Simulated assay, not measured.
Amino acid sequence: MAGVSGCIKYSMFIFNFLFWLCGIVILGIAIWIRVSKDGQEILSSADSGTYPYVAVNILIAVGAIIMILGFLGCCGAVKESRCMLLLFFIFLLLILLLQVAAGILGAAFKSESQSILNETLYKNVNLLSSTSEDAKAFQEAVTEFQEEFKCCGLVNGAADWGNNFLQNYKSCECPSLTDSSCTSYRGKIVYKEPCISFIEELVAKNLIIVIGIAFGLAIIETLGLVFSMVLYCQIGNK
């Protein structure tokens, strides 16, 4: 009867050890965002209710699941446990199928997600002119974005800031009116372009990165499925 291939066994162990480490990193970052002061500011800046918290909670769940899968794969390979390897195969297959389904849905509703983003940005314009404490974190995030991307306001330009303009114009101050990208508003020279176009471009670029990562993960997950099933069969034939 054939024995268990040492190459497959230790490849499976290394693969799942790295998988387990990825789970720890994802879980650690998600927990940090959930409990730290800076993370709370990031979550509250969007002013979108519980949705940012739901996203972080999903990340925590994903990190925990990846850790469990990595543990099952490592132990299953080292101990040559068919039960653990089968559980690993089933759970990884389910994740891969969910990932494929999410990709199909994401492609199908791409235009709809774009309109949701625009709707959210238009809704949050009022936060720039607000004087409430809740709006301050969002305003700080926008000023940083303005400074980095050379834009002003969210949708309508500098006018979005309302009475808060003079307190925040420095982040979107433009060098000279001779520059075609500059305009004058309330006696200050600021960038003409609102930040909505830059945000949309940034989201589109990040979406391509996410798709690339998802594709890479799908390949790694497929290799994990192949390794686990080959090892499972070899243990059964031993």
Rank of each mutant, 00 (worst) to 15 (best):
S11D: 10
L18W: 15
F19W: 03
I24P: 12
I26S: 04
L27C: 06
I29G: 02
A30S: 14
I33A: 11
R34K: 11
D38F: 15
G39A: 07
I42C: 04
A46W: 08
G49L: 10
Y51W: 11
L69T: 13
E80N: 02
L86Y: 05
L86Q: 11
F88H: 06
L97Q: 00
L97N: 05
L98P: 10
A102N: 05
I104L: 06
I104G: 14
I116K: 14
I116H: 11
N118C: 06
E119A: 15
E119G: 15
S132A: 11
E133W: 01
K136F: 03
A137V: 15
F138T: 03
E144S: 14
E147G: 11
C151K: 11
D160T: 07
G162S: 07
L166H: 15
L166R: 07
N168M: 10
K170N: 09
S171D: 09
S181Q: 14
T183Y: 14
S184F: 13
R186Y: 05
F198L: 09
E201F: 12
I209A: 00
V210E: 00
A214C: 11
F215C: 10
G216E: 07
I220L: 05
L223N: 10
L223P: 02
L223T: 09
L231M: 04
N237G: 01
